[in-house]
């Protein structure tokens, strides 16, 4: 009986226990993506704006991954947070201050607060009801944005606001070079935060809730409060993505709130893989570039091509292509890792 009671006074636990956790490790796919992003800066030429789009979508997809992939919150309304962040940042630039970093914070806080309030409702239900609820909230907000012309500019959206140079030094140029690097820095920051989050005790608790929320309750964890926290964090990150979008494009329209955007981000995650952070990167890149190219080749039928891509992705890589790339990486690095 002593075995269960007394802590054996081994001061240093075995290292292999720490290694038995599926923590997010920086794998080959991460290295690849970051190298590519910096490399791309010098070779994008006229495509810096597209590159910036990719980065913004990655941030949005990361935020969705925290909700769906890590916590099992089934949201098909993440564009709402993106849009609210965008409008908040634009309104802030129009009426208060043109300083961009504060604008990001404002966008994030506005969306986070909206996530907190709607979370009280959305997180009460699960499954299909939850999906539909998030869609419904999205529809309501879109309706409000379209009608409330004095604030949102209605269908015309908001434009004509100034964004001051970043840190008073780097002004946004016409070619989108600054915008690209700016978004990339924010992405790096968000990614670092997300990584800390998913590896923390809280991050594991979220996965536990996703797997079996009943049992998590019976371990004494206040599940509702934890879900509300991650939902608000996820909303805030989506809001930051929206704020960047408002700042670098100088325009916010109602499409930033649309169901289409919510759906597209979900597709990115499906392509890249959920619950692994890197999926957002891979999915975001493939999705934005593919739809840009497909739309250029056939402006009328490109959605069909997108559908085809999605079917292929789900058929051949149900976990997304992220694990697939990591496995290739693991293959190459195997010799070094395992004796």
């Amino acid at each position: 009986m002593a075995v269960l009671k007394v802590t054996p006074s081994k001061d240093t636990p075995k290292r292999d226990i720490a290694a038995s956790f599926g923590s997010h490790r920086l794998g080959l796919s991460d290295a690849l993506v970051w190298a590519l992003a910096i490399f791309a800066y010098f070779f994008l030429g006229a495509y810096h704006q597209l590159g910036t789009q990719v980065i913004i979508m990655i941030i949005l997809a990361l935020s969705l991954d925290l909700a769906i992939g890590y916590s099992g919150i089934e949201s098909l309304g993440h564009a709402v947070f993106f849009g609210i962040g965008a409008y908040a940042a634009a309104l802030f630039a129009l009426n208060v201050l043109s300083e961009p970093l504060t604008g990001l914070v404002v966008g994030g806080l506005a969306a986070g607060a909206f996530g907190f309030v709607t979370g009280l409702l959305v997180l009460r239900v699960r499954g299909l009801t939850q999906v539909i609820l998030t869609i419904a909230i999205g529809a309501v907000v879109l309706q409000v944005a379209t009608t409330w012309k004095s604030v949102t500019g209605g269908d015309d959206g908001l434009a004509g606001y100034q964004v001051a140079p970043i840190l008073g030094r780097y002004s946004f140029d016409l070619y989108g070079h600054t915008a690209y690097l700016y978004s990339l820095c924010v992405l790096a920051f968000v990614f670092a935060l997300a990584r800390i989050l998913v590896n923390s005790p809280f991050g594991y608790v979220l996965r536990g809730i996703r797997d079996n929320d009943q049992r998590m309750r019976m371990l004494g964890v206040p599940v509702a409060a934890r879900l509300l926290l991650i939902y608000s964090i996820s909303a805030a990150i989506a809001g930051v993505a929206g704020a960047i979008s408002a700042q670098v494009t100088g325009l916010v329209a109602t499409d930033s709130l649309s169901f289409l955007l919510s759906g597209n981000v979900l597709i990115m995650l499906l392509i890249g893989g959920m619950g692994r952070l890197t999926g957002a990167f891979i999915g975001g890149i493939i999705f934005v570039i593919f739809s840009d190219r497909a739309a250029a080749i056939d402006p009328f039928n490109w959605l069909f091509m997108l559908g085809g891509l999605l079917i292929l992705a789900v058929r051949f890589t149900p976990q997304g292509v992220g694990p697939w790339i990591d496995r290739m990486g693991g293959y190459l690095l195997d010799r070094r890792r395992k004796p």
Binding site: I17, F21, S23, I196, S200, P201, F202, V205, L229
Partner: peptide, 9 residues
């Protein structure tokens, strides 16, 4: 369970 940082492992 609400510690947001400091890796669990």
């Amino acid at each position: 369970d609400a510690k947001l940082w400091g890796a669990l492992n």
